[in-house]
């Protein structure tokens, strides 16, 4: 394997024993796990990590989770949504406590990433797909990046929106971030945001004319990602600048 020596420059991604600092409930079905990871090599906004749990008898299970924290944050945060009948996510969301230990390795993924100098951001989140996009917005804030950013966040109801208070703060006037919501199933009285699944009209209104310097990051369940990416391409976005990631029930 001629390329292996060059590619191996980063060395293997070894498992690290991470300690849970706290588990922060985000919504009734999601929690953020804040971890101390010894010798964490650092990550880029948008990457994910593999988690491995071992039972007393040696049985192991692995899953991948998006990293929610900015690269600048000394602690690593994973936001996990509980999947009904899941093997791992209900344990992580409901059972894990401060002081517990889990194995972790990463960071993983070198495509769905944004650097603070990476140009304007167009973010499209479906449900828990907001997690890696949040890492980008946190990175943008931590570096005081002036890259214009727009987030369109589709959720079933306001109660299922992750990071709502923080998004409100980040989106305050003058910060260069605009946040729009669409609530597809249930809306509070007097709701003035969108109330339907995303479509080309909505994307055109939220994002405005195509900016060739912007990169779009789309993350959510498959139906959301397919609809959003297709609509962006139909609006004239260069497909090479539309990056997609799936986040949704895959049995976990």
């Amino acid at each position: 394997m001629a390329g292996a020596a060059v590619l191996g420059r980063l060395g293997p991604l070894r498992w690290r024993l991470a300690e849970v600092v706290e588990v922060v409930p985000e919504t009734p079905s999601a929690a953020t796990i804040v971890l101390d990871v010894p010798d964490w090599p650092g990550h880029r906004a948008g990457q994910h990590a593999d988690v491995r749990l071992t039972a007393e008898d040696g049985y192991q299970a692995q899953r991948s989770y998006s990293i929610a924290s900015a690269p600048e944050d000394p602690r690593l945060a994973l936001t996990v949504e509980r999947l009904e009948n899941g093997e791992v996510s209900p344990f992580l969301v409901d059972e894990l406590r401060a002081g517990d230990r889990i194995e972790l390795r990463g960071p993983i993924g070198g495509y769905f990433v944004w650097e603070a100098n990476g140009g304007p951001l167009r973010l499209l989140a479906g449900g828990s797909g907001v997690v890696p996009l949040m890492a980008m917005l946190r990175h943008r804030e931590a570096t005081r990046s002036e890259a214009p950013a727009t987030l369109l966040y589709s959720a079933r109801s306001l109660g299922e929106v992750l990071y709502r208070d923080e998004l409100e703060r980040l989106g305050a006037a003058g910060a260069g971030l605009r946040v729009s919501y669409t609530l597809t199933r249930e809306r509070p009285p007097g709701w003035s945001g969108y109330d339907r699944r995303i479509d080309g009209d909505m994307l055109g209104e939220v994002f405005g004319p195509v900016d060739p310097a912007a990169t779009a990051f789309v993350c959510g369940p498959t139906s959301f990602v397919e609809a959003a990416a297709d609509a962006l391409v139909a609006l004239g976005h260069d497909p090479a600048r539309v990056k997609t990631e799936r986040f949704g029930p895959t049995g976990g």
């Binding site: 491995r52 192991q60 990416a229 997609t244 799936r246 949704g248 029930p249 895959t250 049995g251």
Partner: peptide, 18 residues
């Protein structure tokens, strides 16, 4: 090793579907 079974057929791709 490290895999779990699913009955779904998850979709993964890095960009828009051609």
């Amino acid at each position: 090793p490290g895999q779990y079974l699913t009955d779904d057929f998850p979709v993964l791709s890095a960009g828009p579907t051609p």
